[in-house]
């Protein structure tokens, strides 16, 4: 693919915590309009990579270019403008505990889109409904919600500004299978309609088989292999073989074609 189709270009990323090296010379691309699944064992640095890309952590070496710009070298204003095009769903939701769900989603709409409070709360309600939350939850505080509902509300907030790039950190973990399938479909629909690029960290094999265009495997401190699922699954690495051809991988593969062919 040509470079102007690349929305995120990470080159030579190194991340170290004291003696522990998490990433070494890691390269990764995210193309416009694709859903990239990022997989790897626990502790392989998936979330750290996400934090490095969105600029929450400055990598110890290497460069991340987002829409062709290096986030670290931008001024505050420009940086904020780029960050507005991100939607991030954190692993634990990271909803603001002092605000209701509606206020959580309305906050970026008021601050960045310049909507009035009424308009913003109305639109926030739409986003919450889109993420699959009932109206009754809208005025509740995050404390009184289940883990699955927090995930949905966090997705609604990530989608608030209709971002260009959506970062999802284990979005379907803790959702029931029906909810997880609906979640997958929602991401697909949004991607098709809005041309979203999605950076998706997940352990959910069904999600991987159903919606991802490419898969990047994080292992041995770098991206071991990146490509379409069929290609990646053929890689000789023993971890990849165990991952995609273990009992769960086989089950997901068998279930996938039925849904996969629809797209």
């Amino acid at each position: 693919m040509s470079t102007d189709n690349t929305v995120i270009q990470a080159r030579g990323i190194c991340n170290r915590f004291g003696q522990q090296v998490v990433h070494e010379n890691l390269d990764l691309d995210l193309y416009r309009g694709e859903i990239l699944g990022v997989v790897g064992g626990s502790g392989s640095g998936k979330s750290v990579l996400l934090r490095s890309i969105v600029g929450l952590r400055r990598p110890d070496a290497g460069q991340v270019r987002v829409f062709g710009q290096d986030l670290a070298s931008l001024g505050e204003e420009q940086r904020s403008a780029v960050e507005r095009r991100f939607g991030v769903l954190f692993q634990k939701g990271a909803l603001f505990s002092s605000l209701t769900l509606t206020e959580n989603v309305a906050l970026p709409l008021i601050e960045h889109a310049g909507l009035s409070r009424t308009d913003a709360e109305h639109l926030a309600g739409v986003k919450l409904a889109l993420a699959g939350l009932p109206i009754s939850a809208a005025d509740k505080y995050p404390v009184s919600l289940s883990g699955g509902m927090i995930k949905r509300a966090a997705l609604a907030r990530a989608l608030a500004l209709d971002p260009d790039i959506l970062f999802l950190d284990e979005p379907t973990a803790g959702l029931d299978p029906i909810g997880a399938a609906a979640f997958d479909q929602l991401i697909l629909t949004l991607r098709d309609a809005l041309g979203l690029s999605v950076f998706l960290i997940t352990h959910d094999l069904d999600t991987l088989y159903t919606i991802t265009d490419r898969i990047a495997v994080l292992s041995q401190k770098k991206v071991l292999v990146a490509g379409p699922l069929a290609e990646v699954a053929q890689h000789p690495d023993s971890w990849i073989q165990a991952y995609f051809h273990g009992p769960r991988g086989r089950a997901a593969e068998q279930a996938a074609p039925r849904t996969g062919q629809e797209h």
Binding site: E121, H122, V126, G132, I135
Partner: peptide, 11 residues
């Protein structure tokens, strides 16, 4: 998708 999810939505 939007329509089905907001169908019953009211403030």
């Amino acid at each position: 998708t939007v329509y089905t999810s907001v169908e019953n939505y009211c403030i």
